[in-house]
Nucleic acid binder design. Structure first.
Lengths: 338, 338
DNA sequence: ATGAAAGCGCTAACAG
DNA sequence: CTGTTAGCGCTTTCAT
């Protein structure tokens, strides 16, 4: 058993044949005699030969690696997406390089460079909350590297993408509150430079309009995480706004608000009904359990990866871009129904 | 602006100089004249030249990439670890290839092969719940690829590792229950082939012994996830065991038990006090909030990566292996104190 | 059925 | 200060 790195050359040298023959024998090329194949494979096994994927990448200008840019890994939704990506990529023999943008534009740009430098065969992206300039993605397109956007897509950028129907989901979530008799419904909104932030707000507005509930801009507050939700909730209470419902852009925001309201003695859902968005591990364990939109992270990861692999492996790459819209269903729990 | 992939050759050809000069100019080699440098850099920028990291890897037998084997990404603790790894690696200019073992031995072995094939400069591993054979890691050692184990380490395997003192943390968690007057304390244990499973159980036993509480093997049940915890809790209730405390191997297990007990009308912490382990996002949002051991996932990721990078970059690699033990503090919340 | 040679993109020792 | 050459590990055409 030879230790360290065994190369094709080593095998060739030992067997007194040429590297090309070893290469062919290893991949069962028809030209090679059975004896040679046997000898080569035996030694390869004995010496624990493993092909150098780096050399292969260079030779074939194909790395069998896909890159993923993700805003934040520590997040039920996004980690579910990664899990879906990983599983599909693994089955197809692809590696996954993960880059976390940490919601920073600069880092997203750097990530993109890194992935291109490493000659990944394709890139999966969900843009950061900060991103408003998309030059780095045009760069990817110039390099003809396939790219699929998931969840947080770039508006008007012609590319493959997989999303959920955020507008409709938000609409149904808000409608659900209205159907349960709520009339003064707040919205804790996401950043409006993200399409999903806009869409979820629009869905909220649509439901209100449809029910002929007057829209009060003061009831729409930009708050998209636990801390901001706490502060926003406190502010709302201090201003003694009369509200009976809340639709939040994500679960953690909903939970931050819920806990703050509860601490002030407000009964959920009796006094204020709450609906979140994402349906991660959290929603089932709060008290009351949280009504939420199931965003199907794992599925989004698998679908996005399948789209990407299809574009990577298909002979002609210039077929039209696709947009897949996944189902997002409202999971009704205790926080919204008395 | 040339699209597609620009190489050093292209630049050299255009400027009618040799590739080596371009290469040197690009890295600001002192030998090269200022004019040449300027010309090269200008064209490189104009043509958006980006070095091919794959070619570099091959040349330098160094990929600037580290591999991570992680049991499950969708898990607050593990995703925190990844986040820590990512941040440190990124700052040091290293890429991160993530492989999920999904708690399967076979997949862990395959992951190891993949990472070696891709010539990663080092590997971070937390072993799967199934793993009892460690041959694949000896393989890594033969290849002289640095390796650091985090959290779930291999017993008696001589390697760098970063862990928390599971035994002590479990001991303190259990002692905390005892100090709050609990005497019939159950333990929902993790798989005993994992060191952390053993250690946490041993810590529990140590605290009981110290308090001269008789150990009842029937109160130790192997249950390490939400579902198993529900079933175990139901079984316990059906058998009408008299218990007043529970120490669970992780938070999700604690929460599964807590919810089941609550549904049967048992008051937490009044009738049964509960302590979990990990302290993720979940523990602060349950009702009552969950007392738990803070496992410092992010820090574990950063420390493990620093150890790995140190071994990768240090000239002599044969300095003694280190074991770093991180502090794990008990975060007391409502579930354990009346 | 096998070998020799070239080349993927880059760097570095050696020459001038 | 710059060019030539060789080689990282592998595949593949073209010879033989």
């Amino acid at each position: 058993m030879k230790s360290g790195l065994v190369t094709i050359k080593d095998l060739a040298h030992e067997l007194k044949i040429s590297p090309s023959t070893v290469s062919r024998a290893l991949k069962d090329h028809p030209d090679i005699s059975v004896e040679t194949k046997l000898a080569v494979n035996e030694l390869a096994k004995k010496w624990n030969y493993q092909p150098n994927a780096v050399a292969l990448s260079l030779k074939q200008s194909r790395s069998n690696t896909i890159g993923v840019i993700i805003p934040e890994i520590v997040h039920f939704f996004f980690s579910s997406v990664i899990s879906g990506i990983e599983d599909v990529a693994y089955d197809a023999g692809f590696n996954v390089i993960i880059c976390q943008s940490n919601e920073k534009y600069d880092r997203e740009v750097a990530n993109t460079r890194t992935l291109l430098a490493n000659r990944v065969d394709g890139i999966l992206v969900s843009i950061s909350k900060e991103t408003t300039d998309f030059g780095h993605f045009y760069n990817v397109r110039d390099r003809v590297v396939p790219m699929v956007f998931y969840d947080r897509v770039v508006p008007d950028f012609y590319a493959d993408q997989v999303i959920i129907d955020d507008l409709d989901a938000a609409y149904r979530a808000t409608k659900h509150l209205i159907e349960n008799g709520r009339k003064k419904i707040m919205h804790f909104a996401g950043p409006q430079n993200l399409l999903i932030g806009q869409q979820r707000k629009n869905g909220y507005l649509k439901a209100l309009k449809e029910a002929r509930i007057e829209i009060d801009e003061n009831l729409i507050i930009e708050a998209d995480n636990f801390e901001k939700a706490r502060l926003a909730a406190i502010k709302v209470l201090d201003e003694k706004k009369a509200i009976d419902g809340l639709f939040a852009v994500n679960d953690l925001t909903a939970i931050g608000a819920m806990q703050t309201l509860q601490k002030r003695g407000i009964k959920i859902p009796d006094e204020i009904a709450i609906v979140g968005f994402s349906d991660g591990r959290l929603s089932g364990i709060t008290n009351p359990t949280l009504t939420s939109v199931d965003q199907h992270g794992y599925e989004m990861g698998t679908v996005a990866t399948e789209m990407l692999l299809k574009r990577i492996t298909s002979a002609k790459k210039d077929y039209p871009f696709e947009t897949k819209v996944l189902n997002a269903n409202l999971i009704v729990r205790e926080s919204s129904v008395v």
